[in-house]
Amino acid sequence: MAQVITDAQGVKRYLINLSVNGDTHTLMVKGNSLLVNVLREDLELTGTKKGCELGDCGSCTVLMDGKPVNSCMVLAVEAEGRAITTIEGVAPNDKLDKLQESFIDHAAIQCGYCTPGMILSGKALLTRNPHPTEEEVREAISGNLCRCTGYVNIVKAILAASEQE
């Protein structure tokens, strides 16, 4: 259980260890601090986007123990002890992941705002199901809204990456 510090106004703050992209960060957060805000503001990992803050658009998708979650729907305190992967952790050594390469090769990017979330949802799918059907790909990214591409090339990019296995 995280250590709690209460300030003069009676506001509680929790001392948590967050494991993000393999690094552990020790942070002081409020009970209502959202994971998305801690990632973006405290850790400056702005590759995780904010689109709606209601869990509708999926642009803040990160992986928690390998599963995609909307980080605007997760409290920072809930993320303690979980392995979090953001888009910055997908290609840690300057070498792109094959799914990132595939997004570029298949023109699956336009404005790019949904792209980090799409890639993480696609990554999670390919990890648990290396050879998905087209329908399974569509299902896996159905919580990630894209306003530019009609998903056509995103689906192609994920399927193409799966075929490289």
Partner: peptide
């Protein structure tokens, strides 16, 4: 069909949007 000039920035999360700036 050359790849987008901003493709790498956008797939790695390096691409900064106004809301990302501080």
């Amino acid at each position: 069909s050359v790849g987008r000039i901003d493709g790498r920035a956008k797939v790695t999360g390096q691409a900064k949007y106004t809301g990302d700036l501080k």
